[in-house]
């Protein structure tokens, strides 16, 4: 290379052709530059080649889909049918995707009796099955902490215990989304992909979330889960009863969270984790109904909420017997 021999800076503006790069002194240098640029571009194309699979997986409709709140009923129906067809195509099974609206006048509350909970983890298992969680990591929206009696310090807790429960010197505290009245995750989301519905359930639009995980950083209860990879569920284990904002199979790279099984609870049914609890530690109901089970607990038991000092105002309560 004798680049240095070439006078690099010929006085500019002497001829003023259309493309100044052609104005440069050495055609050889220019040719090398063009070749270098072409080579660089080709290499770049090669480098990002794993991305070429994306257009196969994401249709134009999906790419251009608007935020949930901007969709008309027709749009939604079209989207639900598309998602059903995609599941049919990928897993060969029929699923129904629907979108039950909040029941007017209802505000959901949940309470757990810590005297009863024995940490057996059936709630986590039920959550995993009901909500079409990724089986590879046995994902669940619930984590159960084993805590030493005599302390409420979660620092002393342990989620990975694997022995007969309950241990005499321990108590057990399941934690899931607290469905806060003042949810920090909702404030954090830069694109309004998560919001609080009228019945108090905080939901995620899985097709709007950009996967920045700011909500996960903001949540004080470790309630949010990220789809680090494409969730895998055996076709025969898929729950075909799927809510658009709840348990439909989530796309890779998006956030998800407990939604109080809204595809069940908005139909009047109990959440899956409550039905699965063998100890009867879980109480669910309408906070606006003075006769509801949950209100009986609030009136007759001494309840507390987690991290009350943060001002998140959870709709999820804990209590002890007597």
């Amino acid at each position: 290379m004798n680049n240095d021999d070439v006078p690099a800076d010929k006085p500019r503006g002497t001829s003023g052709p259309l493309l100044p790069i052609l104005n440069q002194p050495s055609t050889r240098r220019t040719a090398l530059k063009v070749a270098g640029a072409a080579l660089g571009l080709a290499a770049f194309g090669q480098a990002i080649s794993p991305l070429w699979s994306i257009p196969e997986n994401i249709s134009v409709d999906e790419f251009l889909q608007r935020h949930y709140k901007e969709l008309s009923d027709d749009d939604k129906q079209r989207i639900f049918r598309r998602l059903e067809a995609e599941t049919k195509q990928e897993l060969g099974i029929e699923v129904t995707i629907f979108d039950p609206p909040p029941i007017p006048g209802v505000r959901f509350g949940y309470a757990i009796n810590l005297s009863k909970c024995n940490g057996n983890g059936k709630c986590m298992e039920a959550c995993n099955k009901e909500n079409n969680h990724h089986r590879g990591v046995d994902q669940s929206y619930i984590r159960v902490l084993e805590m030493p009696k005599g302390s409420m310090d979660m620092e002393q807790g342990n989620t990975t215990y694997d022995h007969a429960v309950p241990q005499d010197d321990k108590f057990y505290m399941p934690v899931q989304c607290q469905q806060c009245e003042n949810p920090p995750c909702v404030s954090a989301c830069p694109v309004e992909a998560t919001w609080r519905e009228d019945d108090g359930i905080v939901v995620v639009d899985y097709n709007w979330c950009i996967g920045c995980r700011y909500c996960e950083a903001a949540c004080p209860y470790h309630a949010r889960r990220f789809n680090w990879e494409e969730p895998e569920i055996p076709a025969d284990e898929v729950n075909p009863n799927q809510g658009y904002l709840s348990n439909r199979i989530r796309p890779q790279g998006t956030m998800e969270k407990c939604h109080f099984c809204l595809h069940r609870t908005r139909e009047g049914r109990l959440p899956a984790c409550l039905e699965a609890c063998p100890t009867g530690a879980r109480v669910f109901g309408d906070l606006n109904d003075p006769e509801s089970d949950i209100n009986w607990v609030l009136k007759n038991k001494r309840v507390f909420v987690l991290k009350e000092e943060l001002g998140t105002r959870p709709n999820f309560f804990y209590f002890f017997d007597s």
């Binding site: 940490g119 986590m124 590879g136 990975t160 022995h163 007969a164």
Partner: peptide, 23 residues
């Protein structure tokens, strides 16, 4: 008295491989 149970389901967190024994 409610009998003791053996937990049958644990999330297989990625970071638990190899499984973490104690906290």
């Amino acid at each position: 008295q409610f009998p003791k149970m053996q937990p049958t389901f644990k999330p297989k967190d990625r970071f638990l491989e190899p499984p973490r024994t104690a906290h």
